[in-house]
Design a protein around this nucleic acid. Structure first.
Lengths: 118, 118
DNA sequence: ATAACGTACAACCATATGGTTGCACGTTTC
DNA sequence: GAAACGTGCAACCATATGGTTGTACGTTAT
């Protein structure tokens, strides 16, 4: 099995930061939902300038959450669910730390020898 | 079953933004892992001022990822895995949009009648 | 009581972010 | 070829972020 967390700390920063904006989450939802969407079609849906939406898409692209595919003069935006899955894996990992905390406690309780190390 | 997404858009902004920083992710990992940690004990582990770490903890607290519990003159920091689970649910939801896109396609293919609605 | 510790908060600074407008350039249409 | 369209990028602005130091204040220890 290959490493499932090929993301550097900086990658994770970009990934979560990209998700920390409502407009960007909405764009991700639309393109994952199958909406055939060029940048300008997306831009028409939001109450801000084209350039603003174009920047949001750029942020999503740098975070690996979407890819752009040239098609004539437009760039079709496609969602990348694999990157979402990676973010989800990190959260699972953190939640796993919580769970393992109790299984360690269980182990200590089941093992009456006292640990000597600090 | 109660609603599983009681988080407003602004809540989600705070939640993902809180996760978009390596120091904060590390703090979450430590406290979820069971490290008994006051703010100053946490601060000692990082190469920055106490005030900086205190601010990071405040950001995590506002995002609902940790809670502080006064104990004498210290504030013990505890992780809140439920909030992580909520973030994870959002990602699952987004990935679900992707999957449902294909099940819709499957439905269309399995149903030879042409849809009339746009 | 006084000193030391742990925390919170304000003020400040540099940089990042999210928005704007304007312009350049490739592509399509006429 | 000229006009219109879609995109990207630069410059600019206001505000947010992540860091600093200093100060105030409650709690613990001497």
């Amino acid at each position: 099995m290959v490493a499932r967390f090929p993301l550097s700390d900086a990658d994770l920063d970009r990934l979560f930061r990209a998700l920390a904006d409502g407009t960007r989450r909405d764009i991700v939802a639309r393109v994952l939902g199958g909406e055939q969407a060029s940048v300008s079609v997306l831009a028409a849906r939001y109450d801000m300038s084209f350039a603003a939406v174009q920047k949001h898409v750029a942020v999503l692209e740098e975070a690996g959450l979407v890819t752009k595919h040239p098609q004539g003069r437009e760039r079709m935006v496609r969602g990348n669910p694999a990157q979402l899955a990676r973010a989800r894996e990190l959260l699972l990992h953190l939640e796993g730390l919580w769970k393992s905390r109790f299984s360690q406690l269980d182990a200590v309780l089941a093992e009456p020898r006292l640990p000597q190390d600090d």
